[in-house]
Amino acid sequence: MKDISNKEYKELYEQKRPKAKLSTNCLKAFCVGGLICMIAQAFNDIYTKVLGIGAVNAASFTSITMIFLGALLTGLGIYDDIGRFAGGGSLVPITGFANSVVSPALEFKKEGLIFGVAAKMFVIAGPVIVYGLSSSMIVGFIYYIVRMILL
């Protein structure tokens, strides 16, 4: 097995590898993702127009509702099938965030409520919170300095 270099082998296996069906995958992701957002829009309309909640709070309630749905579908064992079908379509909406928190919480239940459920809950979603909050604080600090100089 000395007659093939690592580089030659990489070319060989990449050429033999089944091609990802990009257009079909994108279409699935587009449709499922769009549909999830439309459901969110429907809840938002119900909260603002029917229940008369203010825009800011209605947005929060909408997020929380979508997170609940994502969590419930994960618990019922449906969200992983949606994810396998839709890929990015169910990953990017906030329901996917809920899925990434709830799935390890379920998975590690056997290790107990403290070391399992609670400790493992953010193994996948942790980076999103860390980078989201950190970046908003860093950018916020820059915003604060710039605002001080300009005013």
Partner: peptide, 10 residues
């Protein structure tokens, strides 16, 4: 990944 995680594999 956890069983209920909705990811795609190649």
């Amino acid at each position: 990944m956890p069983l209920e995680y909705g990811g795609q594999r190649p």
